[in-house]
């Protein structure tokens, strides 16, 4: 059964790699956030599978927390996108001159 769970974990890792490839290649910022959201969901499932591979079901608490954190992260990222621009990069653009170091 453990070997089987290793195979399952590997296929979830393949899905996470595909999601990361979309996050790197995505034409718009929404594609990237979508891919990161899917990456987080797969990470929750992977943590659950790892908890059953190692036989320590206390690890499931981490999966529970991660599923909530993932949602909050997506909402925060969208909040930044909806306001028009990322505050951090905007401030950096204003403050720096060409050739100046941060």
């Amino acid at each position: 059964m453990t070997i089987f769970l290793y195979v399952i974990g590997f296929s979830i890792l393949v899905t996470m790699a595909l999601a990361l490839a979309r996050a790197l290649a995505g034409p718009t910022v929404f594609d990237r956030i979508l891919a990161v959201n899917m990456f987080g969901t797969k990470a929750v499932l992977l943590v659950a599978v790892v908890a059953f591979i190692s036989g320590r079901t206390d690890v499931l608490d981490i999966a529970l927390l991660y599923s909530l954190l993932n949602f909050v992260g997506v909402a925060a990222a969208l909040r930044l996108v909806e306001r028009g621009s990322f505050y951090a990069t905007e401030r950096v653009h204003v403050k720096t001159k060409p050739g100046e170091k941060l």
């Binding site: 929404f30 499931l60 949602f71």
Partner: peptide, 25 residues
């Protein structure tokens, strides 16, 4: 029970995240 709670959280948060993504796009 913890697995069921994870499932419920995913069930309630995933349509909200998906709607906010598509709506802001």
């Amino acid at each position: 029970v913890k697995l069921f709670l994870i499932f419920v959280f995913l069930l309630f948060t995933s349509p909200t995240a998906s709607y906010s993504l598509s709506h802001s796009a």
